[in-house]
Nucleic acid binder design. Structure first.
Lengths: 243, 243
DNA sequence: GTCTATATAATGATAGAC
DNA sequence: GTCTATCATTATATAGAC
């Protein structure tokens, strides 16, 4: 009873069920997951009872929204990849998408999901990490990106910091207590992206730490740990809290 | 009626008011701000009525918690600075603090506040940006850190990404539906810190982008924008969504 | 200061008419 | 499929006894 729709065609998708789901995505983006079923029903022009009738429960509605948002994310990603280089880093992709009126609610919902945690958040984080890894791999092959001692760990680190920074910075702009927060959020995201572009490029191009002995010291300590761990494999893995 | 206590001595701070406030900090860290006044009262060994009596409302209680958490943050920061180099980057400071049993609830509450947004979140972000700027400035003076074209913007960028990455990654570990989530959270934070140390040091020491023309192109475009903005100062600042 | 009892409002979910 | 009416629960906050 749950998944048979949703993956169906997009044509006859303007029925009440889809209207409720779309209204929920918009309202969650604006006010968070605490928004009431009644408010969603009102925004969709129906009744609270119908919402439950279609989705079983509020959790069921959320699951349907998660699924739809993930679908739109993939769609937006494809668009961005074809359009230009907007799909490379988290903030540039998100800023690009948020400006497309159709994709803006998806971006807002996604940020709410990241702030709250849950399956959708985990899935998007994994997607970003993987996509970053592939992009960096291509960059290394073409000589634009420096090779890494551990490409997977580097990509994961960069993806999480990029996504997290955007979440932290854009989180306040989500709250639309004001009248019409329609294009304002997209604008704020673009402003953020333009704010960090130059410092990020500077750090990534010129580096930040001048003294290479820091890195060398940690590399040596890491190798040392690996060796001792190979000796007594069973012992509780205590990487320790250093520095 | 509100602030006269709280900054008072720590000795006679074990009355019911302080007990309620401390219980609230712990429970908010574990379950978020949606936790009920009743649950807080029960954890403090008192009644819901007394909570309202002391703090006026749930919002009043949160304000008191915010204030106390900020006080503990400053305290932990001072400790960390004196102890060693644990105060330098967000994750290392947080990981260090979360392992101190006394400071762990403060760190969890802080992450909840960052995820939710609000005055405390803004204040902590500003503090981190400023502290990062000062640390980097000292590093530049001693030759360990590379100088920047825009030190303030670079510090802000690094602070937000570091804090945001930690928030994104540690957010799921906060939920303590399980039995006793006491030391587990601190351990998870330490694990995260050790996960990102090597990739971060690699990127910061060796850089990420091999081709310097990327950065150069954006620098040129930025200068161009500055010039046109100097011509017509009034025009709506359209930095534009590039890339 | 602290408690119990209660007022009041809002929530998610159900039942049944149409 | 859709609605209205309602239930049961839970929430914050109040009132007043002690």
């Amino acid at each position: 009873m749950r998944l048979e729709n949703g993956r169906a065609g997009r044509a006859e998708d303007l029925n009440a069920r889809a209207r409720i789901r779309d209204a929920a995505i918009v309202l969650v983006g604006r006010h968070g997951f605490g928004v009431s079923v009644r408010a969603i029903a009102e925004a969709a022009g129906t009744s609270a009872g119908l919402v439950i009738h279609h989705f079983g429960s509020k959790a069921g509605l959320r699951a349907a929204c998660d699924e739809e948002v993930l679908r739109r994310y993939r769609e937006a990603k494809t668009d961005a990849m074809q359009t230009g280089a907007s799909g490379t880093f988290a903030h540039s992709f998100m800023a690009h998408s948020a400006q497309v009126r159709e994709h803006a609610p998806m971006v807002a919902y996604l940020l709410r999901a990241l702030a709250e945690g849950g399956p959708l958040a985990e899935e998007v984080i994994e997607k970003f990490a993987l996509e970053t890894e592939q992009i960096l791999e291509a960059g290394v092959a073409s000589g634009q990106i420096r090779p890494s001692r551990d490409p997977k760990a580097r990509a994961r680190y960069l993806a999480i910091e990029s996504l997290g920074g955007m979440l932290l910075r854009m989180r306040p702009a989500l709250d639309a207590d004001g009248d019409l927060g329609d294009g304002r959020f997209g604008d704020a995201l673009v402003r953020y992206a333009s704010e960090i572009t130059l410092p990020a490029l500077e750090v990534f191009t010129e580096g930040l730490i001048a003294d290479p002995s820091f890195y060398a010291a940690f590399l040596a300590k890491d190798k040392e740990n690996e060796d001792t761990e190979n000796e007594d494999t069973e012992k509780e893995a205590g990487h320790g809290a250093r520095g």
